[in-house]
């Protein structure tokens, strides 16, 4: 179990080592820290969005050891020693991910709030299954709710990204 210190309020703060987008972070956190808040507030990675906060909308989707999860339902302590990828980790060497390129090309997001989550769900799909069917794409993003555009452009963009990689 992680080491801890007791702060001046008598609350334990636990030591965690978490790799986010390839960078290793060592932090002292309280047990009640949720991953989504840790990413946004402790690491200033605000690409990951908070919305429903109960695992329905998918706006907070990140990859945990390569698998998409709702970061609003993950305790940061449970991620100790593990690897997280957020939307900020998609672009590499100043080059956008093919999914990001295609999202723009197809004007897939409208307000954009759901886009980081959909990008992560789509990324997880393409890592596992580089040539998905339309049904597989729809299923992969079924846990991501978009309240503006509907899903048609998203599905087209993801299929196009798969075809272009």
């Amino acid at each position: 179990m992680a080491n801890f210190v007791v702060d001046t309020d008598g609350i334990k703060r636990y030591l965690v080592n978490i790799t986010v987008n390839g960078t290793k972070y060592t932090k002292m956190i309280k047990a009640n820290s949720l991953l989504v808040n840790f990413l946004r507030e402790d690491l200033d990675l605000t690409g990951t969005k908070r919305a429903c906060e109960q695992g329905d909308c998918g706006a907070c989707t990140v990859l945990l050891d390569g698998k998409p999860v709702n970061s609003c339902m993950v305790l940061t302590l449970s991620v100790d020693g593990r690897e997280v990828t957020t939307v900020e980790g998609l672009a590499a060497n100043a080059k956008l991910d093919i999914l990001q390129e295609k999202f723009m090309e197809h004007s897939a997001p409208q307000c954009g709030f759901c886009a980081p989550g959909i990008l992560m769900s789509a990324k997880a799909l393409l890592m596992k299954n580089p040539h998905p069917t339309e049904h597989e794409v729809r299923e992969a993003i079924a846990g991501n709710l978009c309240r503006c555009t509907g899903y048609v452009h998203y599905v087209e963009a993801i299929l196009d990204a798969a075809a272009s990689q």
Partner: peptide, 12 residues
């Protein structure tokens, strides 16, 4: 949304 404080154990 934030959770109340609690103690955390990860038994082996």
């Amino acid at each position: 949304m934030y959770l109340q404080d609690f103690e955390y154990f990860r038994p082996g």
